[in-house]
């Protein structure tokens, strides 16, 4: 009887604790359909498992308080070896609970991924930044991911080098960028605004830089805008890209952007502001051979104050022609 009262009280207090945790809002801002589905599962799990935690803790503490051996006490414990009915119940009830959790998780998963997509975007991970391709717009962008609110977006996540993890906490969605394959993520943003974009998978010395808002890096952001704003942004970006392609320095800037250099390096012609590596504007008029070596063999000479974290494979991934154009352009101050 004592056990029943303590157990029931413990369970109720535990569930209330769960309700309090849910009410206190432990999750970040909720900005997608997927986030709503996920948080619903999370809230239910927190409340029910809170009850289990309360039950165990209450019985544990009560047993210690009531039954601890006191000096001089000669009580002998009852030689109970088990209780079949009780044991069956504490197998069945947890089984029902976890099957219930599985069911609601499965439903949330289906709801998250269902329906036809309105927009496809490819995200490229690279040491140590992201790059965004908008195939429907013919655009390739670096610093910021811009998406329209309310659209069902299919992200294809790819990587140029090692594994990265693409995570937007406000969307509650992440997936790894895995070499040699394309991974997919469905998001339906429900809120406009600017949200954190975090790399969750250790990808090298620059990993924290990909993890948003670290000192010295440009914050990685997802900007969610209205459809009208998005259309305007797309038109503007397309115009800027067209203008760049026709300008004399366009080719170099295009190579620079496609290779992802702007994620770490500031260079005025490409309008990049990355602060992980040294700025490149000061290279104008410099020694072309030294610049070439710093791209193909970045460990050879390091600018003081910067570590040896630049990927070593640009010599292989850039074609010799592109490398020439880039080196000339950097040495010539963008011309």
């Amino acid at each position: 009887m004592k056990l029943v009262i303590i157990g029931v009280v413990g369970t109720i207090v535990g569930c209330l604790l769960g309700v309090a945790i849910v009410a206190a809002g432990t999750m970040p801002e909720q900005a997608s359909v997927q986030a709503e589905n996920t948080d619903w599962v999370y809230d239910i799990m927190v409340i029910i498992t809170g009850g289990i935690f309360g039950l165990v803790t209450a019985v544990l503490v009560a047993a210690i308080v009531i039954y601890r051996h006191r000096r001089g006490e000669t009580r002998v414990a009852p030689p109970v070896h088990g209780h079949t009915v009780l044991e069956i119940w504490w197998t069945i009830i947890p089984a029902i609970i976890v099957i219930f959790f599985t069911a609601i998780s499965w439903k949330a998963l289906n709801d998250n991924e269902g329906g036809k997509a309105d927009l496809a975007i490819t995200v490229w991970g690279q040491q140590f930044d992201w790059k965004y391709d908008y195939p429907s717009l013919g655009l390739e962008q670096q610093s910021e991911l811009v998406v329209p609110v309310g659209a069902k977006i299919d992200f294809t996540i790819r990587t140029k080098d090692v594994i990265h993890g693409f995570w937007v906490p406000a969307w509650r969605m992440q997936i790894n960028a895995t070499p040699g394959r394309e991974t997919a993520l469905r998001v339906t943003p429900t809120k406009t605004g600017s949200f954190k974009l975090v790399c969750t998978f250790i990808c090298g010395s620059g990993h924290p830089v990909m993890g948003t808002d670290v000192k010295g890096s440009i914050p990685r952001r997802v900007r969610v805008v209205t459809q009208a704003e998005w259309d305007a942004w797309a038109a503007e970006a397309q115009a800027a890209a067209a203008e760049q392609a026709s300008s004399p320095e366009g080719a170099a800037v295009s190579i620079f952007t496609k290779a992802g250099c702007g994620g770490c390096h500031a260079w005025t012609p490409a309008a990049s502001t990355g602060g992980v590596g040294p700025g490149l504007d000061g290279l104008a008029g410099g020694d072309a051979e030294a610049i070439r070596q710093s791209i193909t063999d970045p460990s050879a000479t390091l600018v003081s104050g910067f570590g040896d974290i630049m990927p070593k494979d640009f010599g292989a991934s850039l074609s010799p022609g592109d490398l020439d154009i880039l080196v000339q352009s950097l040495a010539g101050g963008g011309a």
């Binding site: 999370y42 799990m45 509650r172």
Partner: peptide
């Protein structure tokens, strides 16, 4: 308890790594 939460695929999509 947190292990049970992590078994839920949608929740893990949020907190993985």
């Amino acid at each position: 308890v947190t292990g049970i939460w992590l078994a839920s695929v949608p929740f893990t999509y949020h907190v993985h790594d």
